[in-house]
């Protein structure tokens, strides 16, 4: 698995997240969406729980032990998970890198 250690800018993280989302839900669906940092996973991107598992796995595979993504998610309650958006993940990854 690729594990990178270089620090990414928020734009680079955003583009990486978009790439992961495309891989998980398929290009044909992503083309119809306007993905922004405000996009929420469940409401805007319509990702279901098993797709979010796939997305989480991609983050873990990419960043390795640099971040504890599942641990971070597990600290959230249901409402927080529902409202989770891309910007929150970008901020979290940036924090872990600093």
């Amino acid at each position: 698995m690729d594990t990178i250690t270089t620090k990414l800018s928020s734009e680079e993280i955003f583009n990486l997240m978009k790439q992961f989302i495309t891989e998980v839900i398929g290009e044909e669906f992503v083309e119809e969406m306007d993905i922004t940092p405000e996009s929420s996973f469940t409401k805007d991107l319509e990702m279901d729980s098993i797709e979010i598992v796939s997305f989480s796995e991609k983050i873990k595979a990419h960043f390795g032990e640099q971040i504890d993504f599942t641990g971070w998610l597990s600290s959230m309650d249901l409402d927080q998970l529902i409202n989770l958006n891309l910007g929150m993940i970008i901020s979290y990854i940036e924090e872990c890198q600093s």
Binding site: S49, I50, I52, V53, S56, T70, G71, L73, S74, L81
Partner: peptide
Amino acid sequence: SNLSVYYFNIAPLLATKYHVVLYD
């Protein structure tokens, strides 16, 4: 359902002490 019912909350807590295996 699928393994996500455990993946986000239940499995991470159990994994603080145990090897946890989930499957679909």
